[in-house]
Amino acid sequence: MVAVTVIGPGSIGSAVVAVAVRGGADVQVLGRTEAKARAAAEPLGASFGAVGDTLTGDIVVLAVPFDAVEEILGQYHAAFRGRVLVDVSNPVDFATFDGLIVPAYSSAAQAMQSTVPEARVLKAFNTNFAATLHSGVIADQPTAVLVAGDDADAKEALLGVVRTAGLRGVDAGSLKRARELEAIGFLQLTLGMREEISWTGGLGLVA
């Protein structure tokens, strides 16, 4: 059985927990407080704890805002060695909401890989709204989860969980493609903020 740890029990983190449980994974949820993690974990039969507890997942999903990533990477730096580390952040400049705060030639996920080179970093879930991860559909199409990364085995491990959960898992290419995924995520957020699309919808992928 695949073991997944989700750090961050907010809306997107809780949605990833639901996907991982449906995908047959043994799931651990860690939050700033144990109470927050419990609220996301208990209804789905997942274990829970507080940030700082020992990681149980071979796949660790960092479902925290971009500005909280550095602290988590520092806290668990040694523990991430050899693990699959999934970045779901969208590094939006929230002061202007008019761009990303990472260099145009890079991405949040690539910066993460540089910080923890021993981890196998993937970019995923940042182009999904939480509601469509829970429902599993956008309109009449399965929700598509785009996964970018340089480690083929790491991608297949995550894609296996996603597909078992009934979603459409798509290999989006190397970790360099995280830049494009973050741009798509940003565009989708701006459309949602302008009420051009619903938070229960989003951008879909038609085969």
Rank of each mutant, 00 (worst) to 15 (best):
L85P: 08
P103H: 00
S47N: 06
S47I: 06
V88D: 07
F48Q: 09
Q75L: 15
P65A: 03
H77P: 02
V88W: 03
R83F: 04
G52T: 12
N90W: 09
F66K: 03
S89T: 15
D67F: 12
T54L: 15
V88Y: 04
L73H: 07
E71S: 11
E70K: 07
D93T: 13
I72M: 06
I59A: 03
G57E: 09
L55A: 08
V51S: 15
L85I: 05
V60R: 06
P91M: 05
D87K: 03
A46D: 07
L62F: 04
P103C: 02
T96G: 14
V84Y: 00
D67T: 11
V51A: 15
S47E: 11
N90Y: 08
D67P: 08
A50Y: 13
A95Y: 09
A95S: 13
Q75K: 15
A78E: 10
V102D: 00
G52L: 10
G49H: 04
A79G: 07
I101V: 14
P91W: 02
D53V: 10
V102S: 02
D87E: 11
S47G: 08
A68I: 03
D67R: 14
F94M: 11
D93N: 13
G82I: 08
T96R: 14
F97S: 10
G74L: 01
R83K: 13
Q75I: 14
A63V: 09
V92A: 14
F94L: 12
A79M: 07
P91R: 07
L55C: 08
L62C: 01
V64I: 10
S47R: 06
G49K: 06
P103M: 01
V102W: 00
L55S: 08
V102G: 01
L62T: 00
G57W: 04
L73M: 08
V51F: 14
F94E: 10
L100S: 02
V86G: 05
I72L: 10
F80I: 07
P103E: 01
F94W: 13
G82F: 08
R83H: 08
L62G: 01
P65G: 04
R81C: 15
P91L: 05
G82R: 09
S47D: 09
F80Y: 09
P65Q: 00
P65F: 01
L100N: 02
L100C: 05
F97C: 10
Y76C: 01
D87V: 04
R83G: 05
P103I: 02
V84L: 05
D98E: 15
I72K: 05
E71Y: 07
S89L: 11
D58M: 11
G57C: 10
N90A: 09
F66Y: 12
D53K: 09
D53F: 08
Q75E: 15
V61P: 07
Q75C: 13
F48H: 12
P91G: 05
V61N: 05
V60D: 00
A46S: 05
T96L: 14
V64D: 02
A68L: 06
